[in-house]
Design a protein around this nucleic acid. Structure first.
Lengths: 337, 337
DNA sequence: AAAAAAATTGAAAACCTTTTCTTGACTATT
DNA sequence: AATAGTCAAGAAAAGGTTTTCAATTTTTTT
């Protein structure tokens, strides 16, 4: 049988109230000798308090939920690692949930997390949102949204990326490399990052005096699979085209299919990704991409979440982080301009 | 305030005992009319039981721990996904832990999982083991070991891979392709899979009438970083060498450094990996590798774990899965034999 | 119609903590 | 010496469920 606070109390000849105070370091009104005596017995007997019983009365579980859309995408994997590290440092455990980018699954997970009484949730939401449905869900615990937006009532903070500027930089880079037609291969437009990137794309074209043509905006999913299929759907010739992709997985799929069709990257065609996952460095040609501080995003979102839980969030609850353009082989040709 | 079983009982004019029976579907000795009436009110009020209170009395939390060494390695990521999917299907939640391949961190996590009263643990252990220390940890919940071995007292089952045969197939393939010197680039040898692969490597050499030379066995970590450094440490010329790598990350790092030094893969040098993570398909040259059923490993280990928890494990608690050799560009040269 | 058997229900204990508030014992002040 | 003030400690309630078993009601059998 596991040893309980009663056992300790009996052994020490004190009440459970006293032991409880000592365990939780509320020893202002406990005498030094009692503290010493009880601590010794706790150590001897290797007592640890029962979390369930404690949580019952404190209404805190020291447990968080972590929802990401795609565990196979290293971008989210890095976010998860950052989140886990920080949670661990702060004494929290993490329930892990992978939504497969499916809003229904996300709903189910949120409900199950609430039932398990997590103190808060870190959410990287599914791409396709549904404002009305989200608003209806009854959430009484804090949520911090990371990377992607969401409309739940519980959302109390967010860690975002400056996608607008990022996209602007990426597209601008393609233009400066002399690619003529600039194509945006986007993930679902229901999500804010996608829309912001679209906005940056358009602004960069406009600033360069280029015409915005819907034919050059292709929308799909944030998966490699989509990237591989893209060129099949295009009915114009791929001469001197620059592709700006919604993420690296799409870009990697695209490059794969371009190579199979014997297009020359970067000589004929340029490709820019978004995220800078580590694979981008390994493929050939290596991928020019916009680096996001993914680990940091996870780390800071948990920090923010816990601050909110502790009511210590004097700071703003919205944080925006910057991207950095990492230039590699996939756009690295002699500038034709 | 959240609605409780008492509220339901009062509304229905029955006792909490009756409501409890109905909630848990133990309705053999509850009249149909009562069941109907109570169910209706439960639905109306949207009542869900309090997990903490329930766990207090049942001593089950419907929660499992999942420990993997490296979330950045897609092999373990796939295991985690399989595990999560199966756990979810069976109504369990998962506490996620990343040990960074560090035994101390693994210990800490196990203790914290036990404190949080998980029902069981799925463990893909850190590579370097310590039998004596592990034996000392007091574990009173079941553990299923996946992929890697461990010595904790709590281990009640395992899902393994036939690493011996896998390695044999890989090495044999290199030999049949005419590579002369076969080098084994291994992860830490403290772990059973590594030792089994070494055994397979040796057997394949022996069967081919080749001499086993310790100079050709290089031991490091299961990281890409190690793969990139390997050739710096070799003091023989890399002519017609076949590298058999402990995992794909090592192989990918190795290929990267070979390319940088202008060695021709596969013409001069052949490389075989282990795991067949999806990146192996994307790099250039694409990587010949031994495919492990990683998703399945995670899926089945959770299944086994829960069977053990339910005492339904008539079957053997040890399962061994097979590998499959996937031949790609990194060994695909005209056979010189 | 009475007795026996079966079906249904609920009272109360148990699970292990934390927290509040009262009590009792000292100490300091007048 | 009496009173006020301080300090230390514990009794008891609360948190929400499950489970056991005794009590009651209903049905069946004689």
């Amino acid at each position: 049988m596991k040893i309980t606070i009663k056992d300790i109390a009996k052994l020490a000849g004190v009440s459970t109230a006293t032991v409880s105070k000592i365990v939780n370091n509320k020893i202002d009104d406990v005498s030094d000798t009692t503290v010493y005596k009880v601590r010794k017995i706790i150590k001897e007997k290797n007592y640890t308090p029962n979390y369930l019983a404690r949580s019952m009365v404190t209404k805190k579980t020291k447990t968080l939920g972590l929802i990401i859309p795609d565990i196979r995408n290293p971008f989210f994997t890095d976010i998860a690692k950052g989140a886990e590290d920080r949670a661990n440092e702060l004494g929290y455990s993490i329930f892990f949930c992978n939504s497969d980018d499916d809003l229904d699954k996300e709903f189910t997970y949120i409900n199950s997390l609430i039932e398990k009484q997590v103190d808060g949730i870190m959410l990287a939401g599914a791409a396709k949102r549904d404002r009305d449905r989200e608003r209806k869900i009854n959430i009484n615990i804090p949520i911090v949204a990371v990377d992607r937006n969401a409309y739940y009532k519980g959302i109390k903070g967010s860690i975002e990326i400056d996608n607008y500027t990022g996209a602007y930089k990426g597209v601008n880079h393609l233009i400066s490399k002399g690619y003529e037609r600039i194509v945006f291969v986007s993930g679902p437009l229901e999500t804010k990052p996608s829309m912001e990137r679209l906005r940056g794309y358009k602004k960069a074209l406009k600033d360069a005096g280029k015409i915005i043509d819907n034919e050059n905006i292709i929308v799909g999913t944030y998966e490699r699979n989509f990237g591989e299929k893209v060129i099949e759907t295009l009915d114009y010739s791929l001469k001197n085209v620059g592709f700006f992709c919604g993420n690296d997985l799409i870009a990697i799929g695209l490059i794969k299919s371009l190579k199979e069709k014997n297009y020359k990257v970067p000589e004929e065609i340029g490709v820019v990704g978004f995220d800078d996952i580590y694979i981008s460095l390994l493929i050939s040609p290596s991928l020019t991409s916009l680096r996001q501080p993914s680990y940091k995003m996870g780390y800071e979102s948990i920090e923010l979440l816990i601050k909110i839980l502790d009511n210590n969030n004097e700071e703003k609850n919205k944080k925006m982080l910057k991207t950095r353009l990492i230039i590699r082989e996939s756009t690295n040709r002699i500038n034709l301009d």
